[in-house]
Write a protein that binds this DNA or RNA. Structure first.
Lengths: 147, 147
DNA sequence: TATTGTTATACTCTATAACTATA
DNA sequence: TATAGTTATAGAGTATAACAATA
């Protein structure tokens, strides 16, 4: 708790502003890439989670949403033949999610598109990119969490 | 500009990963602050736009969404007495949006909460914060855009 | 008793198309 | 003709609560 200095507060407000703007831009970017793959942004995020087979509830945790929500998302992706629900040998309650061949193709295409679209930020040199990565790694919003 | 090196590509993929993760964290943060003010994240973003009175279509542009969408958002906020629709003296087609006294209170509370929650990242010194700001200002996802 | 996943429900968000009232 | 905003509609996302199956 050494920041009672006004500059820290000013910079802090500025960071909020820029980060929320960045979030908006990135979400727009994600939406565009998703749309090119005929997906919604949420479906795209779900597909990105499925690099490996995994049970539903871990996906819900990773997406920070309610499990009942994932049920609906998977329903729509399964109807399109991109995802499958399988049994778990060890625990008959769980449904293991996995990509179909078509799902793997769509996911790979999406990843390529995202890398192409987001990873060529004009105006940043490779050195600056590394610097940004380092700062983002240290940055933890809500890090000052009380209570 | 010494691109073309493999490291640049690796860093690029890493940036996508980190930025999407950051987007998720920030959205969660926004959702939490919004919820404390009894708002949805979208309603919070709309309120943030209304620091000054302004016509609806400029808000739609800033939020990058369809105007018909803003109609619904405003309907709900107006019903709660946070926003008002007023006439424009110069052009009778436009509806000028403005915050009520209650709306200003909620917005101020929200801004304070956001600054508190997001702007005190543990582990970043003031110098690093300034550095981060500079890099974020230069960063333009989709910067490879033609035209 | 607790956990995994689904269903039912209700709401919000979102875009498209058709409409109005202005300009 | 073009623009600002609304309405109607349809669909997607979201959480809550109740539930079945399993642990």
């Amino acid at each position: 708790m050494e920041d009672g200095r006004p500059e820290a507060h000013v910079a802090a407000g500025e960071v909020v502003e820029r980060l929320l703007a960045l979030t908006g831009e990135l979400h727009r970017l994600l939406a565009e890439c998703a749309a090119r793959a005929d997906l919604t942004p949420q479906q795209a995020m779900l597909l990105r989670c499925l690099g490996q087979r995994r049970p539903m509830h871990t996906v819900a945790a990773e997406l920070s949403c309610d499990p009942s929500n994932v049920t609906g998302l998977i329903d729509r992706l399964e109807r399109r033949g991109l995802v499958e629900r399988g049994p778990d040998a060890a625990d008959r309650r769980v449904r293991v999610l996995s990509l179909t061949a078509a799902g793997r193709r769509v996911r790979a295409e999406l990843e390529r598109d995202l890398a192409r679209a987001a990873a060529l930020p004009a105006g940043l040199s490779p050195a600056e990119l590394r610097q940004l990565l380092g700062l983002l790694a240290k940055f933890r919003p809500g890090g000052a969490e009380p209570r």
